[in-house]
Design a protein around this nucleic acid. Structure first.
Length: 833
RNA sequence: GCCCGGGUGGCGGAAUGGCAGACGCGAUGGACUCAAAAUCCAUUGUCCGAAAGGGCGUGCGGGUUCGAGUCCCGCCCCGGGCACCA
């Protein structure tokens, strides 16, 4: 597509200037008020893809807009440079992950710059830099000393063929290894955890204060999953005694009020009592369930089995007594109960729990309703209007002896009081949130700085020996096994306490650890004495605006919040810093063929072909114009022509700004009514676009600018007033500057000689930003029957009078008097007859 | 399965409970041109009508309201996350 100006040359020129002049480098001594804008730092997967472009377009727009508003804007950039893809590439090609990663970083950095996004590159962070590794490890040892890091066993995906641990991503949907095709099994390993559950209540409570999208906060609340309920002991019926004590099965329930409806109990396949509970005649079926659970992921296990349901559970042969009814109920083992939640055992109440209902149906188990369902529930309360199943809504307690007649909250409280009085149960708050498993059996990550001494056990590597770095002379096996685990030189070390032989930890940290504090390091990336200086962090933090993909709604954002709180408690971060990100914006994804555009799906579209032709400005404008930033974008065969359309719009702006749009001379002298109309439109535009910027409605801001050009172009061609045209064009350039920084900078320089991005954001003159006439809609019974041009400050009675006098309304009413008149000046009058 | 979103012309989308479809893409017709490109002008939800005008229309079914794309209830379909991709 031929363009009105030399796009590539102009964009290169300004990118060089912003870098050379350090336009966007800021320090704590800057007199302007600080503002911290951060786009989530990327995993360097090669040249930027469209998701990056979208992310950095929004971020860069904010940096430039805030700068024009007079702030010292901290805009850093870095790379989340540890991770699986580099290790996989090493296994495939033999290239060291560092060589591979540094090359990808160079590509990504170049394409980010070519987008015209501006950063304080002096502050660049790479999580695989030894300096970052060092402070990452210092923080780890502090967490360990504070008791916030600990070791425990946890299952991993184990590929018997590769003899290695697999990431979930490497396990195919059918449960086999993507590399070898072997069936993946679950295997227990000793691993490192961070005690995020210590912060569960604070993580939950502090969400209320954050200026985050409601849906993200909701997802986090649900993820933390605080539920109040009870733990109770169910006596196992019969001869089972352990060390002379009667055997009890402890269950957790959020619905103690439904206890009278317990018709069976379920233990998780991993439950320690499974073996004791299982009688010989049922052992075969139970073992079947156990072995199936061992090879299933959690999602498969909790998914509805449908016809498979019969294979997912088995009767153990044992019974427990329902303490409320005194009746024995059978104990099943089933994979829909997870060992990691509650006590790993449940009382099953099919009438009031959907999963219990499905299981009970499949196994022919009885149900007893303890909450009266709504009228007609049994006939058509179910999906598609069929018979109702489990009823989980509110209602009156029934079939529950001394709880009958109460509502659910009352019955809950009374049931727990009774359990506590009887000494068989306690009130208990439970969280769905589990501690954070940070161990990874991989090479390309931050080594966990710990050694194992035969005499002293777990010993953190002392400060003066940090960072612990992985050796370079390693071989990557096609099985995917981490070379750290077998590297004798790395493995064998000495104990920091007694100097005797010791073994190094070979696990590395989850890359989410790296990304949990990088925003703090950005405040002070040069610090050689500590992770960051408290005063500098106090100056910039919390991040005023954080921007990233909705896919990070839970994990990354929750971990970063936890880390910030823990770092403050450990004394690294300022005491009062409890939250890292004041305001969060989650952009939508780019979709192609109905799926998220991602490298793993192989459906990436490279931005370079656009940057080299229509230019970065047009591509940025497209991303801003295509729809609301929070919505997903569908990349289709029509997208290219929309991007071209954005380029065409910039051409029109260029021709207007450079006076190359026809040769009609402009006027001087008195302003005509038409000139005044253009002035008013200019100031209304400032008002509208400013408000759109504030509410992240860039698509309508762009549309408004396009509409303005549609007015301005004929005005200038028709020989408009020189000063009015100049004001209009300058305003347009200023409003567009954060969106399309190159073309506006060049045009502004040609017009005024200075730098548009250092100019203040325009202000609307309230006397000019006024609408002169609005359309009053007149409806009869809600249908539009006339439109009348009125003054915007018309009163209700005047509007009603005008409506009733309108000839078209007189005709429509045909002599009837309206029964009711709704007058909402200046927009609408509705006559109800 | 659980949690969170979304569904409006041919397409992307706009619309503090008040004119549904701004703006753009595409399409059609026209101007300019030897011709094309570029540019500019006009039309463009759908049905009836020559027109004026009217009927219908925001995934489906109900409800609240003078008035519903917007609020409530119940569905259907599509997407994201589900703890080792980041």
């Amino acid at each position: 597509m031929a363009r009105a100006y030399d796009v590539v040359a102009i964009e290169k020129k300004w990118q060089r200037r912003w870098a050379d002049e350090g336009t966007y480098e800021v320090d704590v001594d800057d007199p302007r008020p600080p503002w911290y804008v951060l786009s989530m730092y990327p995993y360097p997967s090669g040249p930027a893809h469209m998701g990056h472009v979208r992310n950095y377009t929004f971020g860069d727009l904010l940096v430039r807009h805030r700068t024009m508003l007079g702030h010292a804007v901290l805009s850093p950039f870095g790379f989340d440079s540890f991770g699986l893809p580099a290790e996989n590439a090493a296994i495939k090609t033999g290239t060291h992950p560092r060589i591979f990663t540094d090359a990808r970083i160079a590509e990504l950095k170049a394409s980010v710059i070519s987008l015209g996004a501006v950063y304080d590159w002096r502050r660049e962070i790479r999580s695989h830099d030894p300096s970052y590794i060092k402070w990452n490890q210092v923080i780890f040892t502090s967490l360990l000393e504070a008791g916030l890091a600990y070791r425990a066993t946890a299952p991993v995906n184990w590929c018997p063929g590769c003899q290695t641990v697999l990431a979930n991503e490497q396990v195919l949907p059918d449960g086999t290894c993507e590399r070898s095709g072997d069936l993946v099994i679950q295997r227990d390993l000793e691993q490192w955890f961070f005690r995020i559950t210590d912060y569960a209540d604070e993580l939950l409570a502090d969400l209320d204060e954050l200026d985050w999208p409601e849906r993200v906060k909701t997802m986090q609340r649900n993820w933390i999953g605080r539920s109040e309920g009870a733990e109770m002991d169910l006596a196992v019926v019969g001869q089972n005694l352990v060390d002379g004590e009667p055997l009890v099965l402890t269950v957790f329930t959020t619905r103690p009020d439904t206890s009278f409806g317990m018709t069976y109990a379920v233990v998780a396949p991993e439950h320690p009592l499974v073996d004791v509970l299982t009688t010989d005649e049922h052992r075969h079926q139970v073992d079947d369930v156990l072995s199936r659970a061992a090879i299933s992921s959690e999602i498969e296990r909790t998914a509805e089995g449908g016809g498979e349901a019969a294979k997912r559970g088995a009767f153990t042969g044992s019974y427990v007594r329902n303490p409320f009814t005194g009746q024995p109920v059978p104990v099943y083992v089933a994979d829909y109960v997870l060992m990691g939640y509650g006590t790993g055992a449940i009382m099953a109440v099919p009438a009031e729990d959907a999963r219990d209902w499905n299981f009970a149906k499949a196994y022919g188990l009885p149900f007893v309703r303890t909450v009266r369902p709504p009228e007609g529930w049994e006939e058509h309360g179910g999906p598609d209007g069929g018979p109702g199943g489990a009823y989980t809504g509110p209602g009156e307690k029934i079939n529950s002896d001394w709880l009958n007649g109460l509502d659910i909250p009352e019955a809950k409280a009374k049931a727990i009081d009774w359990l506590e009085a009887e000494g068989i149960g306690v009130r208990k708050v439970n969280y769905r949130l589990r501690d954070w498993l940070v161990s990874r059996q991989r090479f390309w990550g931050c080594p966990i700085p710990v050694v194992y001494c035969p005499d002293h056990g777990i010993v953190p590597v002392p400060f003066d020996q940090l960072p612990v770095l992985a050796p370079d002379d390693v071989e990557f096996l096609p099985t995917g096994e981490s070379p750290l685990a077998t590297n004798e030189a790395f493995l064998n070390t000495t104990c920091p306490i007694d100097g005797g032989p010791a073994i190094r930890e070979t696990d590395t940290m989850d890359t989410f650890v790296d990304s949990s504090w990088y925003f703090l390091r950005f405040c002070d990336p040069w610090n050689e004495d500590r992770p960051f200086d408290q005063d500098k962090v106090r100056h910039w933090m919390p991040v005023d605006q954080y921007i990233g993909g909705i896919e990070h709604a839970i994990l990354h954002l929750l971990y970063a919040r936890f880390y910030t709180k823990a770092l403050a408690d450990l004394g690294f971060a300022p005491e009062g810093l409890r939250e890292p990100f004041d305001s969060l914006f989650t952009q939508g994804m780019i979709r192609m063929d109905g799926h998220k555009m991602s490298k793993s799906r192989g459906n990436l579209v490279a931005p370079s072909k656009y940057i080299e032709t229509v230019g970065a400005d047009a591509l940025r404008l497209f991303h801003l114009f295509v729809g609301p930033p929070a919505d997903d974008v569908d990349w289709t065969e029509q997208t290219d022509s929309v991007i071209d359309g954005c380029g065409r719009f910039l051409d029109r702006v260029w021709r207007l700004a450079t006076g190359t749009d026809g040769n009609t001379p402009l006027r001087d002298g008195e302003l005509t009514p038409e000139d005044m109309a253009v002035r008013r439109k200019t100031h209304l535009l400032i008002d509208k676009v400013t408000r759109d910027y504030e509410r992240w409605s860039y698509n309508t801001a762009v549309a408004e600018c396009m509409g303005f050009v549609n007015v301005l172009q004929p005005y200038v061609r028709g020989g408009g007033h020189a000063e009015v045209a100049a004001e209009a064009i300058d305003t347009l350039l200023l409003l567009l500057a954060p969106m399309t920084p190159h073309v506006t900078a060049e045009a502004w320089e040609l017009r005024h000689g200075d730098h548009i991005h250092l100019r203040p954001w325009p202000l609307a003159d309230p006397a000019l930003a006024v609408v002169e006439q609005v359309t009053l809609v007149v409806q009869v019974n809600g249908k539009v029957r006339d439109r009348i041009e009125v003054s915007p400050d018309i009163g209700a009675e005047e509007a009603e009078r005008l409506a009733l006098e309108s000839p078209r309304i007189v005709e429509t009413l045909d002599g009837q008097a309206p029964k009711r008149v709704i007058s909402r000046p200046p927009k609408l009058v509705n006559l109800v007859v």
